[in-house]
Simulated assay, not measured.
Amino acid sequence: MKSSVLDAPARKNLIFLLPGLILYATFVLGPIIAAAVLGFTEWNGISAPKFVWFKNYIELFGDPYFGIALRNNAMLMFFYCVLPLLIGVALASIVSAIKSREQLAIRTLLFMPYIMPSAVLGIIWQWLYNPAFGPINQILKGLGLGALALPWLGDFNFALPAVGIVATWYYFGFCMVIFLTGLQRLDDSVFEAARVDGAGSLYIFRRITLPLLLPEIRIVLLLTIIASIKSFDLIFTMTRGGPANATLVPNIYMYELGFQLGRYGYAASVAIIGAILIFIVNYAVHRFVRPADGV
Rank of each mutant, 00 (worst) to 15 (best):
I124Y: 09
I124W: 06
I124H: 09
Q126N: 14
W127A: 04
W127S: 03
L128N: 02
L128G: 01
Y129L: 01
N130H: 13
P131H: 06
A132Y: 06
F133R: 08
F133T: 01
F133K: 06
F133C: 03
G134E: 01
P135G: 04
P135Y: 10
P135E: 03
P135K: 04
I136E: 12
I136M: 09
N137Y: 08
Q138L: 12
I139V: 15
L140I: 00
L140K: 05
G142E: 10
G142C: 07
L145G: 08
L145F: 11
G146R: 10
G146H: 13
A147Q: 14
A147F: 14
A147Y: 11
L148V: 01
L148Y: 14
L148K: 09
L150Y: 13
L150R: 15
L150C: 06
P151A: 15
P151T: 00
W152R: 02
L153D: 02
L153N: 02
L153I: 02
D155R: 05
F156H: 14
F156W: 12
N157T: 02
N157S: 13
N157V: 00
N157A: 11
F158I: 01
F158K: 15
A159Q: 03
L160K: 12
L160R: 13
L160Y: 08
P161W: 08
P161H: 11
P161Y: 06
P161L: 07
A162N: 03
A162Q: 02
A162S: 15
V163G: 05
G164I: 00
I165T: 08
A167I: 02
T168F: 13
T168S: 15
W169F: 11
W169A: 03
W169Q: 05
Y170P: 05
Y170K: 04
Y171S: 04
F172G: 01
G173Y: 08
G173L: 05
F174Q: 02
F174H: 06
C175N: 11
M176A: 05
V177Q: 08
V177I: 11
I178T: 03
I178M: 11
L180D: 08
L180S: 10
T181C: 07
T181K: 08
G182P: 03
G182S: 01
G182I: 00
L183A: 06
L183E: 09
L183Q: 14
L183M: 15
L183W: 07
L183F: 11
Q184I: 00
R185M: 11
L186G: 02
L186K: 07
L186V: 00
D187F: 08
D187S: 09
D188V: 01
D188Y: 13
S189P: 09
V190R: 13
V190D: 11
V190F: 13
V190P: 13
F191M: 13
F191T: 02
E192Y: 10
A193H: 12
A193Y: 08
A194L: 06
R195I: 01
